[in-house]
């Protein structure tokens, strides 16, 4: 009996390790490529461990792409702005949907959910035309303002969380003479630490990884984001695999750091959005 159990558990580990090869293998290969010389990437059979190990890909990256540090800073700036903006507006909007007793709530919430289903691309071209006309084109405004004013995903996420907080809290504050603003700022927000962190992280990651919006709304290379910067590296020298790998690594590091330090909030946020 116990040998059979040990067998199935060994079998499970083998399956899990095989899967791990598929999911982590490509990332390990990225690291390995980044530390190779260009010649080493064409060696057959390919070797996982670079020999000699070199960081020259990074110096080539910063030489050919002098704007690289700038793109990284830009991506950080816009991602942080979107993170903060999102938790501010989404918490307010979601509070309205979760805690007030207006008759309009359900109708408007259906509209919020409907916009969640509609691809942003339908409105993208007219937004491009609109932003060109009002002078927002080639600024960061199109990358930030629409994200935190009208992102249904975050409204949904915050509302889901607020619904789990007991209503008696509101009643108690109300009896003590507080209004909705007091309930929002003094009762709900202090209890919303986890969702605020999840919301910030998600908005940060979405903005950091977004390729489409900066591609369309930003023209000046100086204002560009890391994601489009990466594409420019690909265009510059697509034969230099170590340099492209080094660029990908830089784009990946901030996200990986956030993930490994705040993993719980990642998981809770994803699960919260998927389950009623």
């Amino acid at each position: 009996m116990s040998t059979a159990k040990a067998m199935t558990s060994t079998y499970k580990y083998i399956m899990l390790l095989l899967g791990l090869l598929v999911f982590i293998g490509p990332l390990l290969w990225l690291l390995s490529t980044m530390l190779k010389t260009q010649d080493q990437t064409y060696v057959f059979p390919p070797k996982l461990l670079p020999n000699p190990l070199t960081f020259s890909s990074f110096s080539r990256l910063f030489e050919t792409m002098s704007l690289m540090p700038r793109w990284i800073m830009n991506s950080f700036a816009v991602s942080i702005i979107n993170g903060l903006g999102t938790i501010l507006t989404s918490s307010l909007i979601a509070f309205g949907f979760a805690r007030t007793r207006s008759r309009l709530r359900s109708v408007l919430f259906i509209i919020v959910l409907a916009t969640l289903m509609i691809p942003s691309q339908v409105t993208l071209i007219p937004m491009y035309i609109l932003f060109s006309k009002i002078g927002w084109y080639d600024t960061w405004l199109p990358l930030t303002i629409p994200v935190f004013l009208a992102n249904p995903y975050f409204i949904f996420l915050f509302r889901q969380f607020f619904m789990t907080l007991p209503r008696e809290l509101d009643e108690a504050t109300y009896v003590d003479g507080g209004n909705y603003w007091t309930i929002y700022s003094k009762v709900i927000l202090p209890l919303s630490g986890p969702i605020i962190i999840s919301g910030f992280i998600f908005a940060f990651v979405f903005t950091w990884t977004d390729y489409f919006s900066p591609l369309i709304f930003i023209q000046s290379e100086k204002l560009q984001m890391m994601s489009v910067g990466l594409q420019l590296i690909m265009g510059k020298n697509s034969q230099d695999l170590p340099m492209m790998a080094a660029g990908s690594f830089l784009a990946l590091v901030p996200i990986a750091v956030i993930y490994f330090t705040a993993q719980k909030y990642f998981v809770d946020g994803v699960v919260m959005s998927g389950i009623k």
Binding site: L16, G19, L20, F23, I24, P26, L27, W29, L30, T33, T41, V205, W208, T209, Y211, M226, S227, V228, L230, Q231, M234, S238, L241, M244, A245, G247, S248, A251, L252, I255, A256, Y259, F260, Q263, F266
Partner: peptide, 22 residues
């Protein structure tokens, strides 16, 4: 295992494309 299986989901799409080119 769960942590590591999840990781690729977070790789920026452009970086994923570069990995696929490699």
């Amino acid at each position: 295992f769960r942590t590591l299986y999840y990781l690729p989901y977070l790789v920026p799409p452009v970086a994923t494309v570069i990995i696929w080119i490699i």
